[in-house]
Design a protein around this nucleic acid. Structure first.
Length: 501
RNA sequence: GGCGCCGUAGCCAAGUGGUAAGGCAGAGGUCUGCAAAACCUCCAUCACCGGUUCGACUCCGGUCGGCGCCUCCA
């Protein structure tokens, strides 16, 4: 079995065949840091994270590049509105992105280049295109790419099969008249006073200005992959479906025209949109939810990943409260199972465990090799949890095989919630706990929870069920569950937000 | 107007030319002082109408419904 992926370029699922044996270069279009990234953005980054992890788990040496767009119309406009420099506006959002990324357990790219740090390579690329005669300086002083001089234009988005509707976009650009052909796109925008005001202008042989949108990806990808592995072609390039046209189409045009090669990336991967209550999540619609919104609501990142991976990356995903609540419950169940599993670890696998482990390994591989089928991969994980729980109930213990299979699968998916739990085996008669709501700092919470667990244990031993029940009710209203285990221990368990009873 | 995606149980969602994974919710049961957790069992005939086929949810055509892209939105 080998990994097969859907390639937008060919519109087919095809086997992955890297340029260099065992190595994959992966370029993913990153965030524009004019604001907080929303869950729609993160859906794409999560699908790319799954891809990255699966490639690595499959034995590939991956070189992952994710750009950070810190200069474009929106960042400049936002900085100007706020009356600060571009840099001052963008830095906090770049940091916020990294926090959110880490929270969602997304592996950082090996290279995370910022557009403003690669102005040099961009200028070089644009100059190269001018020298080759496929770019020209327009009447407005900006540099444009001449589509007419690049015959392969439109292959990715099947433009030859489309008719552009005049005025379909309401964003009619003011520089329309400066271009030779309405479809030509800008490589370098001549500096305007607004750009200068926020420090978004650079000198170039063809005039002072700033980069167009697409040029950064080409320049940074080519520069980094050349430096790292000495190639001029990427194995994979990924992004959201909206980037197919014009962004990726334009990247191909300018990159290939520059390198003289007929491909820029061999496989083009595109993740579908996240909708919210039926509509595309977008700043324009004012319907965005950010990662930090969920974090503040107490949602576990594992639940967010589960929600995303339960839908195939090429299908639209509709975010609703019900769907999120469902994922939280599932993620919680996996979290409690994981805890049981690790606590029961032994030298050798029980029969139920070795069978379940074999199945998990096989099903996970089949699912992910088949165009990154997250839903099936997740189903395999749940099947293992159910079988494992049953085995544990039957007194079996998991050995190296089962633990290895679980850790590998969960290490790729990362859909399991952290479950906070505090256990007490013996009642201590001297404890007095009077705080009804848990303290805020982590240390004290443990003490608090254990105290209540011990008090319930005490009450139960005295057959004082009224008190025992009272303690449970109180804990539940504070968002905690009580577990009376068969071995006599009492646990107090934090219930994830959104699944409280 | 052009290009494209989708419509599977209360909700989310895989899948496939031969009689529908998984998750959440729900029902019953085991366990429990009662619970919780866990486990077991149950819960659909795949929008609609035609056609192709021995056989279609899966292929073709149409209808209805939802969504996306069409120059700077992941």
């Amino acid at each position: 079995m080998t990994l097969r992926l859907y390639n937008t370029l060919t519109r087919r699922v095809e086997p992955v065949q890297p340029l260099q044996q065992g190595r994959v270069s992966l370029y993913t279009c990153g965030p524009t840091v004019y604001n907080y990234a929303h869950l729609g953005n993160f859906r794409t980054f999560l699908f790319e994270d799954l891809l990255r992890r699966w490639l690595e788990a499959s034995g590939y040496e991956v070189f992952h590049i994710m750009n950070v767009t810190d200069v474009d119309d929106r960042t400049i406009a936002a900085a100007r509105d706020k009356g600060v420099s571009l840099r001052a506006h963008v830095d906090p959002f770049a940091r916020a992105f990294e926090e959110d990324r880490d929270w969602l357990r997304i592996r950082p790219a090996h290279a995370q280049p910022r557009a403003t740090e690669y102005i040099g390579p961009m200028i070089e690329l644009i100059q190269g295109l001018l020298d080759r005669g496929v770019a020209y300086v327009g009447d407005d002083g900006s540099v444009y790419f001449a589509i007419a001089r690049f015959p392969a234009y439109g292959r990715l988005s099947q433009l030859d099969r489309r008719e552009l509707r005049a005025g379909a976009s309401e964003r009619v650009s003011a520089d329309e008249y400066a271009k030779e052909d309405a479809r030509d796109f800008v490589l370098w925008k001549a500096a305007r006073p607004e750009d200068e005001a926020v420090g978004a202008a650079w000198d170039a042989p063809f005039g002072r200005g700033r980069p167009g949108w697409h040029i950064e990806c080409s320049a940074m990808a080519l520069e980094l992959v050349r430096r790292h592995w000495g190639t001029e072609v990427l194995d994979m390039h990924a992004g959201g479906v909206d980037l197919i046209f014009p962004h990726h189409e334009d990247e191909i045009a300018q990159s290939c025209a520059y390198t003289g090669r007929d491909e820029f990336a061999r496989v083009w991967l595109h993740g579908e949109f996240l909708n919210i209550r039926g509509e595309k999540m977008s700043k324009r619609f004012g319907n965005i939810t950010t990662a930090r919104d969920l974090r503040e609501d107490g949602v576990d990142p594992g639940a967010v990943r589960l929600l995303m991976f339960q839908v195939h990356y090429r299908q639209k995903l509709d975010l609703t409260d019900e769907a999120l609540a469902g994922s939280q419950e599932g993620s919680r169940r996996l979290g409690e199972f994981q805890r049981r599993l690790l606590e029961a670890r032994a030298e050798t696998d029980g029969p139920g465990f070795s069978e379940a482990a074999e199945r998990l390994e096989r099903e996970l591989t089949e699912a992910l090799d088949d165009d990154l089928n997250g839903p099936r991969a997740v189903a395999a994980l749940f099947a293992f949890a159910t079988a494992g729980n049953a085995a544990l109930d039957g007194g079996e213990q998991p050995g190296a095989r089962a633990l290895g299979a679980w850790e590998r699968a969960e290490g790729i998916l990362g859909v399991t919630s952290e479950v906070q739990t505090f256990r007490v085996t013996e009642a201590s008669g001297t404890i007095t706990e009077t705080r009804l709501t848990p303290p805020t700092d982590a240390e004290a919470v443990g003490q608090w929870a254990r105290n209540w667990a011990a008090l319930r244990k005490q009450a139960k031993m005295e057959r004082n069920y009224a008190t025992a029940d009272q303690i449970r009710d109180m804990l539940q209203s504070a968002g905690w569950d009580v577990r009376d285990n068969k071995d006599g221990s009492v646990e107090v368990v934090r219930t994830p937000a959104g699944v409280r009873r």
